[in-house]
Amino acid sequence: MIIVIKAGTPVVEIERITLEISRYGIAPEVSLGQQKAVIGLIGDTAEIDTKQIQNISPFIEQVVRIKKPFKRASLEYRNGEHSEVVVPTPNGAVTFGQNHPVVVVAGPCSVENEQMIVETAQVVKATGAQFLRGGAYKPRTSPYAFQGHGESALELLAKAREATGLGIITEVMDAAELELVASVADVIQIGARNMQNFSLLKKVGATGKPVLLKRGLAATIEDWLMSAEYILAAGNPNVILCERGIRTFDKQYTRNTLDISAIPVLRTLTHLPIMIDPSHATGKSEFVQPMAMAAIASGTDSLMIEVHPDPAKALSDGPQSLTLPAFEELMLELGALGKFFGRWAKPNNTYTSAALATQVTARV
Rank of each mutant, 00 (worst) to 15 (best):
G92D: 06
T95A: 15
F96P: 00
N99K: 14
P101L: 08
V104H: 04
V104Q: 02
V105E: 04
G107T: 06
P108G: 14
P108A: 15
P108E: 14
C109I: 14
S110V: 15
V111D: 02
V111C: 06
E112Q: 08
E112P: 01
N113I: 08
N113M: 04
Q115L: 11
Q115N: 14
Q115M: 10
M116V: 02
I117L: 06
I117V: 15
V118L: 08
E119F: 01
E119V: 01
E119H: 09
T120W: 03
V123M: 13
V123D: 10
V124L: 13
A126Q: 08
T127F: 06
T127W: 00
T127V: 07
T127K: 05
Q130V: 00
F131M: 09
R133E: 06
G135T: 07
Y137L: 03
K138F: 04
K138W: 07
P139W: 09
P139K: 06
P143W: 02
Y144H: 03
Y144C: 04
Y144G: 02
A145Q: 06
Q147E: 13
G148V: 05
G148M: 04
H149S: 15
G150P: 09
G150L: 07
A153V: 05
A153E: 01
A153N: 07
A153F: 03
E155R: 15
L156E: 04
L157C: 11
L157P: 00
A158L: 12
K159W: 09
K159R: 11
E162R: 12
A163S: 05
T164M: 07
G165T: 03
L166D: 13
L166F: 14
G167V: 10
G167E: 10
A175V: 01
A175C: 00
A175P: 00
E179M: 05
E179Y: 06
A182F: 01
V184G: 09
D186K: 01
V187C: 08
I188H: 02
Q189M: 10
I190R: 06
G191I: 04
G191F: 09
G191S: 10
A192T: 14
N194Q: 15
N194S: 15
M195E: 13
M195K: 13
N197P: 00
F198R: 10
L201K: 08
L201R: 10
K202W: 02
K202M: 13
K203N: 14
V204W: 05
G205W: 07
T207S: 09
K209T: 06
V211L: 07
L212A: 06
L213A: 08
K214P: 12
R215D: 09
R215T: 07
R215K: 15
G216W: 11
G216L: 10
G216M: 10
L217R: 05
L217A: 14
A218K: 11
A219P: 00
T220I: 01
I221H: 13
I221V: 15
E222F: 10
